[in-house]
Amino acid sequence: MIGLLLLIRRDLKLAFRGGTDAAMAVVFFILAATLFPFGVGPDPEILPRIGGGVIWVVALLAAMLSLERMFSADYEDGSLEQFVLSPLPMVMVALAKIIAHWLTTGVLLLVAAPVLAVFYNLPAAAFVPLIVSMLLGTPTLSLIGAIGAALTLGARRSGVLISLLVLPLYIPVLIFGALVVDSALAGREYGALLMVLGGFLLLALAAAPWATAAALRQAIE
């Protein structure tokens, strides 16, 4: 347990001292979301309607962009081998990296999402559902993404490969995340949809650290 917290603290320190690296995902998040009004036109009727979906899609892409860095630095400088040799189980290492990834990208996306919601003129009723759905959905993105990041360690063109592996598995989260915002806008009940998102999170939490650990062990063999 202490090892887990130490690893998370180490990764957070690295992220903060690394400066711009962690912020890039959020900058991309905001930048990509501002492209859509130019693409579909600044119609005040359309923007609130597509806003929830656009914010979810862009959050997903931003989370994916940051995946490549998740293990690559540790893989290249040999830290990963030290983790395997350490008494800390590999599953804990994977879990620590996943939590650190969520804290450095998912949380930042959560903070930036209301700003984008304002850009898109989302009605006030959609704010809480958007934030709660992202609170439940973004950890799932980090969990699933970790599998893809670990599997592609040392691969040629790993960035493109990660997107091919991870995006199909992100689709369920995207569907239900965007549906929560949509239902809230239409004034429908969305509690059940949030529970589905929570179910995805629990499922990913039960499976992803183990799959990631298995993939990491293969990467350094």
Binding site: L151, A155, R156, L164, P168, L169, A211, Q218, E221
Partner: peptide
């Protein structure tokens, strides 16, 4: 994704194992 992952590594054994994990997750 499975096909791409199988062929993404210089060492074919590594590609096979990574693809196996992906197949089980998928």
């Amino acid at each position: 994704g499975h096909i791409a992952l199988t062929h993404a590594f210089d060492n074919p054994a590594r590609g096979a194992k990574a693809a196996a994990v992906l197949a089980l997750v998928g």
